[in-house]
Computed example of a mutant assay.
Amino acid sequence: MLWLLTAGGRPELGGGGVAREVWRLYHHWYGILAHGAFPAHDPLWQYPPGAGPVLLAPALLPGLTYFQAFVVLTLAADAAVTAALARAGTRPGGSLRGAVHWTCGLPLLLHLPLARYDVQVTALAVVALLVAARSPRACGALAALGALVKVWPVLVLLGLPKGRATRSALVRAAVTCAGALAVLAALFTHPFAFLREQGGRGVQIESLGGTALGLATHAGWSGAARYRYGAMEFTGPYVDTVARVSLALTGLALALLLVWRLRAVRRTPATTYDAALSAVLLFTVTSRVISPQYLIWLLGLAAVCLTSRHTVQRPVTVLVLVAAAVSSVVYPVLYGQVIASTWTGCALMVVRNGLLAAAAVLSFVRLWRATGPLTAPLAVPAPARAR
């Protein structure tokens, strides 16, 4: 992966666009953050205020360029995830499959994980899950910190046991979030500037809705892909309708997860892990945006599931691995084909998003069945004996 960073300018690797986000965009934001302000009025800034300290962190390594320091810190987060998974795998009832899954799965995304800060966010979510059984409060604090960087880590709290554990985690998460926000608001101006830009996002070409619109271009649809809000999005007729459908599906996913939590009566040592993977998968496939770095989150959560021999998500983790491999072909290798909605680009998106959709459905069904009430077999009356 490090070698691919140095060779990223080759045409077969997308011409160098992967690493450009760090040394150009992240470094630009670093300059603004270093002066005590979040990038207000910047349509590319769509991240919660917790992202600020992450982008400032490379300053902790003097003597290195911003890009070099960022990669070193990402590798450190990668090592922390691997160590946490390996330690969990050596506990009673554990398995080292989780550490293997992460170590072998991450390079399927080529050099992308080293040029985004999603590994750092995933590290917070992974550790939060792995400490949940011993310390729900620590789980809540780590999940809150992760949510302040990118919102999705809050979903790891969904599968905590009902009662005291959930209450402790939620209280600690709320306290941590409020305290961190107060500190960030005191140190930086415009901490909530991201809300305006996030709300304006449309349908990214790599989302499920984007896949449908890409196929529609071959049936005469007049829309096209444009660079907006830091991503390639479709513009044209019916795009707003597709965006509203995506939001409705996200709401439906949330409702299903809440129904599951109310209905669940059985648990295994892996239920907290399985629920986190299922929730993030559902929110990912219903999103208006499915960036390739989202696969980093899914690989990390799938690896956590595999640290337990009790998980019901093993088939799902295989689908996530395959989806990650296809994602690296989508971006950066053949991203031009995806942007142009050629038959090749559309086929890639159908396969990648089909795998993610199948993983989401399978994950939720297996979670539902594993935690629902046991159904007693119907009593069949014995035939009467002939006298």
Rank of each mutant, 00 (worst) to 15 (best):
A173C: 05
A173H: 04
A174L: 12
T176K: 02
A178C: 11
G179N: 00
G179V: 08
A182D: 04
V183K: 04
L184K: 11
A185P: 02
T189R: 15
T189I: 05
H190P: 05
P191Y: 05
F192Y: 15
F192K: 11
L195A: 13
E197Q: 14
E197Y: 09
Q198K: 14
Q198Y: 12
R201Y: 04
R201G: 03
G202E: 10
E206D: 08
S207Y: 03
L208I: 04
L213D: 00
A216K: 01
T217K: 05
G220W: 00
G223T: 02
A224I: 04
A224L: 12
A225C: 00
Y227P: 06
Y227N: 07
Y229Q: 12
A231M: 14
M232R: 12
T235Y: 07
G236W: 00
G236C: 02
Y238G: 07
Y238P: 00
T241I: 10
A243I: 03
R244H: 14
L247N: 12
L249M: 13
T250W: 08
G251L: 13
L252D: 02
L252G: 09
A253Q: 08
A253V: 06
A253C: 09
A255S: 13
A255E: 12
A255R: 10
L257D: 07
V259Y: 10
R261N: 08
L262K: 14
V265R: 15
R266I: 07
R266A: 07
T268H: 09
T268E: 05
P269V: 02
A270D: 11
T271E: 07
T271N: 11
Y273I: 02
A275K: 05
A275F: 04
A276T: 11
A276L: 07
A276M: 07
A279W: 06
V280I: 15
V280M: 14
